[in-house]
Design a binder for these strands. Structure first.
Ligand SMILES: NC(=O)c1ccc[n+]([C@@H]2O[C@H](COP(=O)([O-])OP(=O)(O)OC[C@H]3O[C@@H](n4cnc5c(N)ncnc54)[C@H](O)[C@@H]3O)[C@@H](O)[C@H]2O)c1
Ligand SMILES: NC(=O)c1ccc[n+]([C@@H]2O[C@H](COP(=O)([O-])OP(=O)(O)OC[C@H]3O[C@@H](n4cnc5c(N)ncnc54)[C@H](O)[C@@H]3O)[C@@H](O)[C@H]2O)c1
Lengths: 213, 213
DNA sequence: TTGTATCTGTGAAATAAATCACGGATATAT
DNA sequence: ATATATCCGTGATTTATTTCACAGATACAA
């Protein structure tokens, strides 16, 4: 399949909205509501959804349950995926215990750190390991996603190890940019860039649009 | 000024690269290097930079120092801005003490929580306040940016209060989408959406492109 | 039952963005 | 000194994405 990049981004956000609508037992949602929630127009939402081949109901909108199901199936967002966190400092341990990930289909099944000290002190119900065990554990547990929360200086080396160990996707929380082979799906969660994006828009007063993390 | 949205996003990321290049005392950087770092092509980088009116040097690239200075001035990324964090739980306290923000020009000058208990127990050098004081403190300290780290259920109410108190930009870490008036610059840092974006790209094998947070 | 206000679905048109392609410069090597 | 490999700058071109516009549908109100 070949979807616009922006569509993929929006669909992932839409999926999150659907999740919360489903919880609140809302039956139908209009393109307009979704548009407002994720910051775009109803035209765009309808186009996105129609690209995915899902149809709604006149005068009612989309069935929350079945839209979620369809989007989930098409983009395999319904598939459970395993992830690990590398770097168990302040941010890494917060993420380790963030239960929401599991509910959203991403199960954190391992944490890694290179400090034995840290490893001994951490209290969490997730298994934590020395960095030297990474390759084994990732293979053994079939971990697909690596989340990087080590200091900036170590981000590239950790990325290289994760890739060597076999992950397919990387989410990087360090402020340092990482270079990966093109078959690896990689995304930065750079908080400073996000704040800068907001600040820059104070100047260039354009309409809000979704921004791919 | 009226820059493409994507350009703004990329420039913010480029700015981060320049920061680290500057630290490492690198004098020049090519469009190709920057492209690789942020995941795009050299054409696009050159176009972006030329839209900002900055020029480089044949056969050498761009002067790291002066490119950073120019981008900083044009998009006011060099201006120091004050921010506050609302919700001092696991994530909020980690962000509160994240020194890098200050170095990047975003100074966290206040934290807010509605639990007196939490407020008393927190140890940090940043001033923390009860939520009831928010309006006063934000005005008094001229805080422009609000960072939301409260549970999803409370995100909208906190956003409303932040806006009422006068912030111009909001960065939301809760998974719940928030609706804001269009003059407020707003961005989600939705970790689950980011993981989904990666997962979705396992399926739709497109080239990596930058994704606006 | 009849109107009317919504909503979707979708080609067409308009915008926006990315690529291409190549001229002009100039470090660097020989 | 000359050749060569880079690297920028930028119109032109192509591609991608959004927006428009309007034809169905149909819930809902009167
Ligand atoms: N703390 C925040 O709020 C925050 C916010 C945004 C970004 N970040 C970024 O996230 C990353 C982590 O931040 P933090 O505050 O948690 O830092 P931290 O120093 O508290 O934690 C880093 C952890 O990584 C471990 N580590 C270092 N090198 C390693 C390696 N090679 N292999 C495995 N583990 C290694 C350390 O032992 C430590 O436990 C940093 O890059 C930081 O810039 C943090
Ligand atoms: N912990 C993580 O790693 C993580 C990761 C991604 C997203 N998030 C999101 O970030 C948010 C915070 O997560 P957390 O784990 O830190 O939660 P937490 O429960 O540890 O902290 C939430 C804090 O917000 C305060 N609070 C609640 N309602 C408030 C209100 N109306 N006004 C002011 N303060 C209020 C609480 O007292 C508490 O201190 C949540 O929305 C969560 O989904 C967290």
């Amino acid at each position: 399949m070949d979807l616009p990049n922006n569509t993929i981004d929006r669909v992932c956000r839409i999926f999150g909205c659907l999740e919360s609508l489903e919880e609140r037992q809302v039956d139908f949602v209009s393109s307009k509501d979704l548009a407002q929630a994720i910051g775009t127009t109803n035209d765009t939402i309808r186009k996105d959804i129609s690209l995915l081949g899902v149809t709604g109901y006149t005068r009612k909108g989309y069935s929350v349950v079945s839209l979620k199901k369809e989007l989930g199936q098409t983009l395999k967002l319904d598939k459970k995926r395993k992830a690990c966190i590398v770097g168990l400092g302040r941010l890494g341990t917060a993420l380790l215990d963030y239960e929401r990930f599991k509910q959203d289909g991403f199960e954190i099944v391992a944490g890694f750190d290179n400090s034995i000290n840290k490893l001994e002190r951490i209290k969490t119900h997730i298994d934590v390991f020395a960095i030297s065990e990474m390759e084994n554990i990732i293979a053994q547990k079939s971990i697909e996603l690596g989340i990087i929360t080590v200091p900036a200086n170590n981000a590239q080396e950790v990325a290289d190890e994760l890739i060597k160990a076999g992950v397919s996707g990387i989410l990087n929380f360090s402020p340092e940019k990482i270079v990966v082979p093109k078959e690896i799906i990689y995304l930065d969660m750079d908080f400073t860039s996000a704040l800068r994006f907001i600040a820059a828009r104070f100047i260039t007063n354009k309409l809000r649009k979704s921004r791919v993390a």
